[in-house]
Simulated scan of single mutants.
Amino acid sequence: MSTLLEVSGISVTFDGFRAINNLSFQIGPAELRAIIGPNGAGKTTFMDIVTGKTRPDEGRVIWGERSISLLKLSEAQIARAGIGRKFQRPTVFEDQSVTENLLLALKASRNPLAALLWKPKAADMDRVQALATQVGLLDALPRKAGELSHGQKQWLEIGMLLAQEPRLLLVDEPAAGMTLAEREQTTALLVDLAKTRAVVVVEHDMEFVRRLNCRVTVLHEGAVLAEGSLDHVTKNQDVIDVYLGR
């Protein structure tokens, strides 16, 4: 299987604390992966490094078929290269409609004059409809984003990321604060998205991870402790000791 993202031997230390310790990770172009681990395991720092927010002290982060080093790119360049990140708290424009939020997110020229003169074309509206359908918000297009439920705001933000056509989606704790029905819909959405791109889900909720039914990477003290199916990693004695606390 070809590799879309390859992280090898990265380490980073903050004020004497080693947050990431010789961590290696890779994911294919159409793969769903869950990353689990206790607080302080390095999950957020790992995402910060991949998206250019944090620079590692050592190691490599290689992207795509042309083997580009992400460590040489800015955060904006990494986003344009096709890496989208969804943070835990949804950040949408609350006073704008769902349609307007999705239009704002579409890939278009972003220089000030072009933005000022920009008018959505029929193709843009078609794209908004398709995105809204994909994330289950077609009926909510005219509504203000601020009126949506927590789960719907999460889906809208995923839709806004999809508007940028990312090849890798990093999603931080999507199930937090969702109703059971919303969680089920989110599971289905993430599984579907991973058919055409790489999706990494950082999650605490083991039941949600089980439903994703994908390969799991367990982090501990900034390193990979175990990798495999959820059943495989939860039978690992090291994982039981550090993660399940037995």
Rank of each mutant, 00 (worst) to 15 (best):
H232I: 00
G245M: 08
E184N: 11
K72V: 04
S149W: 02
L104K: 00
T217G: 10
L102S: 04
G177P: 04
T234C: 04
A81I: 08
S2M: 14
S8E: 07
A76Q: 13
Q164V: 07
L5C: 06
L4M: 13
A122N: 08
P56W: 07
R89A: 13
E6W: 06
R66E: 14
V7W: 00
L113N: 09
D241H: 12
K195V: 02
L168H: 06
L168M: 12
A81F: 00
L102V: 09
K107P: 05
V233P: 01
E203D: 12
A114T: 11
P174I: 04
G16Y: 10
D172I: 09
T44F: 11
L23K: 01
A122W: 05
P56I: 03
G146V: 06
V242G: 06
T234D: 05
V98S: 00
D95G: 13
I49F: 09
K53M: 15
A114S: 15
A145G: 05
V200S: 08
D95C: 05
N21P: 01
V128Q: 04
R110Q: 12
L156K: 11
S109Q: 11
A76Y: 07
I78N: 01
R18M: 02
F87M: 06
S109E: 12
R33E: 09
R197A: 10
L230G: 00
D48P: 04
G136A: 08
E207C: 03
T91N: 12
L189C: 09
R127A: 13
T13G: 11
T13E: 15
S97K: 03
R143M: 13
V61A: 02
Q154F: 02
I10G: 00
L225A: 11
D95S: 15
A198I: 00
D241Y: 05
F87R: 06
G245E: 05
L117W: 10
I35T: 03
D15V: 03
D231Y: 03
I10Y: 00
L138T: 14
A108W: 02
V12P: 14
F14R: 12
L212E: 03
Q152T: 05
G84M: 02
D241E: 14
T186Y: 00
E203H: 09
G136R: 07
D205I: 10
I240L: 13
A81S: 15
